[in-house]
Design a binder for these strands. Sequence first.
DNA 1: GACTGGCACTCGGTCTGCCGGAGTGCCAAA
DNA 2: TTTGGCACTCCGGCAGACCGAGTGCCAGTC
Lengths: 340, 340
Amino acid sequence: MSLDDRKLEVLRAIVEDYVETQEPVGSKALVERHQLGVSPATVRNDMAVLEEEGYIRQPHTSAGRVPTDAGYRLFVDRLSKVKALSPAERRAIERFLIGAVDLDDVVHRTVRLLAQLTRQVAVVQYPSLARSSVRHLELVPISTTRLMLVMIADTGRVEQRLVELPGPVPADDVTDLRRRVNEKLAGKRLADTPPLVQGLVDDCAPESRATMACLASVLLETLVERSEERLALAGTANLTRGGVLDFQGTLRPVLEALEEEVILLKLIGDLEPSTTRVRIGDENEIDNLRSASVVSTGYGPGATIVGGLGVLGPTRMDYPGTIATVRAVARYVGDLLAQN
Amino acid sequence: MSLDDRKLEVLRAIVEDYVETQEPVGSKALVERHQLGVSPATVRNDMAVLEEEGYIRQPHTSAGRVPTDAGYRLFVDRLSKVKALSPAERRAIERFLIGAVDLDDVVHRTVRLLAQLTRQVAVVQYPSLARSSVRHLELVPISTTRLMLVMIADTGRVEQRLVELPGPVPADDVTDLRRRVNEKLAGKRLADTPPLVQGLVDDCAPESRATMACLASVLLETLVERSEERLALAGTANLTRGGVLDFQGTLRPVLEALEEEVILLKLIGDLEPSTTRVRIGDENEIDNLRSASVVSTGYGPGATIVGGLGVLGPTRMDYPGTIATVRAVARYVGDLLAQN
DNA sequence: GACTGGCACTCGGTCTGCCGGAGTGCCAAA
DNA sequence: TTTGGCACTCCGGCAGACCGAGTGCCAGTC
């Protein structure tokens, strides 16, 4: 038996009420709060069907109904329209993001803004190095046998690494090194650099080959191997809203998961589809987050995507509002990056 | 009436037992677990005095005793000797810290290590810019009217900022700018730079003065005004150990405090005395942390201090162990910095 | 004078039974 | 297909009883 329109309407009403009140919702309360045009008894019949289909459940006999993960999923996919942002929210976003002086600043402001607007835990990934291009490589002599390698990516990220040279290298040679490295690598996408770096060493005059090899290995490390993704986190205190009722008793597992950068990157870093992604409860692959939902999306200047951002909260979450906010913030951040 | 040795011994026993069991400790259990050489009745008399003096209290009549903040304070100041680290711990520290490739890495490893060893929340401040010197300033042309300013501090910190120039500046002029800026500022402590920067503008030829002024304002901002302190945090999940019993019911206020960098800096950034600092419960000025204790100390290469680190946990904390660990980690990090 | 054993007392925690209310499922009627 | 009615279930709160841990006090002892 398929679900007719009214049953879907009942499900929507249950989700909305439950999200708001955090209490199992019964048939009587439902007809009172929504214009369903039918009696509680009818609603009860519908509820029985919805329960059988797995969209809602009773915490215990003689209690109201609560949406299941599948119920939320159906709600998100078919029953909710994305909420428009209020002008106040738009203004908040703009006000928050202007005045950022560098990339660090942008990311930090963004993550706090997101946490504040959604009242959830917010995560923002720094622009991924893997998706960036090299804008410039700088070599700064620290001592005669030490260089600081500074890589500036087109997304604004700056990475630095110390290079221990095999022997003293005069300043002129450093200038030469810098020129050659930049000629070869500037403008290239990081993913494309490894063979080029190898080429640098091969093309090198024998007398400076040792130095270049040394530099190359650090370059490779910086550009590829340790092109680690960084991220910022904010709003953990929001986990305590609504008591410990969400998250079945303890924040423990959730807090633990939030400590693992690898996990967070999995959550928000999956950037294949350029659309917003919602993972509800059990849909999360990470066991610690079975009682949480994640809303994430990619951001970047124009149509390209350079990183991900998103929020994490209880499955009992205002999905339409959260999705709208996450999208809006991502768009604003993208615009901001485009300006540089 | 002053406290004789046995009463102090009783207090120590209470603290140690309570820290271990997290349960109010009674007179009988006390004489069983410690060789006090007296009967429970005697201990009770001592307890009555200790309570009157404000070092312990009863959660309710007919319950055992629990140390007060003052009790912990006395314990820390006079009753505990600093625990020596186990060889395993020493090894853990060394293993954890070698292999760090840059400052970011050092800080992140340190904070995780600290959280893991103490099983508390750990905070590590990046080497403070205010306490650093300029090692080198680099100017990287991004476009004809844009420079990226990169400042490298002797502590390894690297800050970058975008400079919008008033008009196009040829590459040779950039080289000249770079030379002059470095001649004037390299090697100077950041705190001493503002007048020097002003001097740079004054000494400038009229035709390039506008450019230099522009650069100078960003320099000032980078060097002083926004010489913001950064920090890293780890181990928030440790707050959930021991239930919510510590922290009187909610983690809320604590989590909120941990989100505020300003607050955290106050906690661990107070570096005046080079000794370890312990703040217990109410001794914290921040209201949200009245139920927490903070153990912090400074670190740096050799005897100089460039930043702070510490841990935060419930007042019911293993002070001797925590203090020892915090000190040891600080020393190791200092040594590591000294090597660069 | 300090310590000890004994004793009455207090009070939190747990278990029990009880009750009201909210909500359900089912059934017969519209 | 919807509806009103009704019996049933079960949570949550409340009161009473009981147990045990721990105390304070007092009189006796070293």
